[in-house]
Design a protein around this nucleic acid. Structure first.
Length: 464
RNA sequence: UCCGCGGUAGCUCAAUGGUAGAGCGUCCGGCUGUUAACCGGAGGGUUGUAGGUUCGAAUCCUACCCGCGGAGCCA
């Protein structure tokens, strides 16, 4: 089946593929390249290693769409140009078979992308069985069951590249601003906030450990050590959520800064979100276009974002005919009503204390509200940031622990942060998947995650 | 946990009480510039499961299983 002569490969005739040690490898006249580099090699003989994305054939010519993870390129196998064995091999190729092709890069307006490969040599590495994901449409359930294969599609490539860019842009922004990455533990001895249901796991013979729901408390310790810190990692909420914006396992980016108060926090979070959106627009524009994202909506994301107090939000809800009693938390519908009024993300600050976690700093002259601020993404995507200023006063924090019936013994180390050089400080959590879903303009958060975890995704848990 | 919708060929769907079908994928044949290629042919089914009504059930009834969407929780 192989049309390759192993002796030409310079690998001792083993037929094995030498692992690339650098991005570009020279081997005699043929250069191994990635498809996204192909336009710079017009006229040159090159080698591409990848998978068959799609094929169209007629009697004497095959058009192979080859993908290698960096892009998709058309490879043309003409009967007159290759040996009969190579032409037969091209005819046998099935969708998603892995292959190595060599040939000359040619500019041709008829080719998707403007250039193509005229094949001289072709090796089938692994002939694929009939591939379940065909070029026609499929339902979400079927695609989610085949998530491990769905990742090969163009749309998923675009999404995963945007996700990587969101994380890169955000962490680069934090690094530039003097924040130290200091990741918090995943296994924790108790609840961070005392409210959400946690996943538990046996911890040797010492009882139970819990999967973290937030790195925040640890971040506060780190912020008192280094001034400005952030953590990035998976977080877990054992809630039986069943909505387009919830996962039981998701990634969260959490900055925390000493001496930072509420207004400064909002300015900083705003700058970070703007930096992320700008960088995705710059570097992943083609991917956004694959997803048919309305770029004008993203280009409108500029500082300053509107800032709405909780009280003002209630007035707007009343005016919109959706009144909410004071003290109730904003639900998905309420968030949508508020964010729909603006083309930029909007902060809602000064929530009622009873809606928020025990550690939120109360407003000086009005203790029934706290110095919190959530950022709601536009277009109905909802909350992508939650955060605020933390309590730095020791007696007040002790009082709050009692009010929330939290075991003070477990929080002694947290109280220490108030005993030894307490300062006003603030921080927030940015939901990675929610941010990606908003920026990419996708319907459901699950596609922003490699393998979604939700309560109902049990079938996928049984296998992967 | 609650509310709503659904389960028919590998996939997407049709068939509303009377012989279970189409498109795509697969297999075979044809085609030298295809763009979700096209043309001809073939194969493919315990209609989610169990029971009931009926001369006759994919279709009506009951129970269960599974999935999807939404609420609550929050990033």
């Amino acid at each position: 089946m192989s049309a390759f002569r192993p002796d030409r490969r310079g690998n001792g005739g083993t037929g094995k593929i030498a692992p690339p040690t650098q991005r570009t490898i020279w081997r005699r006249r043929t250069m191994l390249i990635r498809i996204d580099e192909a336009s710079g090699h017009a006229g040159a003989e090159i080698e591409i290693r990848g998978w068959l994305y799609h094929k169209r054939s007629s009697g004497s010519i095959h058009f192979l769409l080859v993908r290698d993870g960096s892009g998709v390129m058309q490879a043309v196998v003409a009967k007159q140009d290759v040996s009969p064995s190579i032409f037969t091999a091209a005819a046998e190729l099935t969708q998603e078979s892995s292959l190595i092709v060599r040939g000359v890069v040619r500019v041709d307006p008829r080719a998707p992308g403007g250039h193509e490969l005229t094949v001289r040599d072709l090796q089938i590495v692994g002939l694929a069985k009939p591939y379940p994901i065909t070029p026609k449409e499929h339902g979400v359930e079927f695609l989610m069951d085949h998530r491990h294969l769905w990742l090969r599609s163009r749309r998923q490539h675009a999404l995963m590249r945007i996700r990587a860019e969101v994380i890169r842009a955000a962490t680069e922004f934090l690094d530039r601003n003097g924040y130290l990455r200091m990741d918090a533990p995943i296994l924790t001895p108790a609840s961070v906030e005392g409210t959400t249901t946690l996943f538990e796991t046996p911890y040797f013979d010492l009882g139970k450990a819990y999967l973290t729901q937030s790195g925040q408390l640890y971040n506060e310790a780190a912020a008192s050590a280094f001034g400005r810190v952030y953590c990035l990692g998976p977080t877990f909420r054992a809630e039986k959520s069943k909505t387009r914006r919830h996962l039981t396992e998701f990634w969260m980016l959490e900055p925390e800064a000493a001496f930072m108060e509420l207004d400064e926090y909002m300015e900083f979070a705003e700058a970070m979100v703007c930096a992320v959106v700008t960088q995705v627009l710059e570097r992943r524009r083609a991917d956004l276009q694959v997803l048919e994202r309305d770029l004008a909506r993203l280009e409108a994301v500029r500082a300053p974002f509107p800032r709405l107090s909780y009280d003002e939000a209630l007035s707007r809800l009343l005016a919109a005919g959706k009144p909410l009693p004071w003290g109730e938390d904003l639900g998905g519908d309420e968030e949508t009503v508020i964010s729909a009024a603006f083309e930029r993300p909007v902060f809602v600050h000064h929530y009622p204390a009873r809606c928020k976690a025990f550690y939120m700093q109360p407003e000086r002259d009005r203790p029934d509200v706290v110095l919190s601020a959530d950022l709601l993404a536009p277009e109905g995507y909802g909350e992508i940031i939650g955060g605020g200023q933390r309590i730095h006063d020791l007696p007040l924090l002790e009082q709050r622990l009692q009010e929330h019936h939290l075991p003070e013994r477990v929080y002694q180390w947290y109280l220490d942060l108030r005993r030894y050089g307490a300062v006003p400080h603030s921080g927030f959590g940015l939901g990675i998947e929610r941010s990606v879903a908003w920026i990419a303009g996708i319907e459901h958060i699950r596609e922003a995650s490699m393998k979604r975890r939700t309560q109902m995704a049990e079938r996928s848990m049984q296998t992967t």
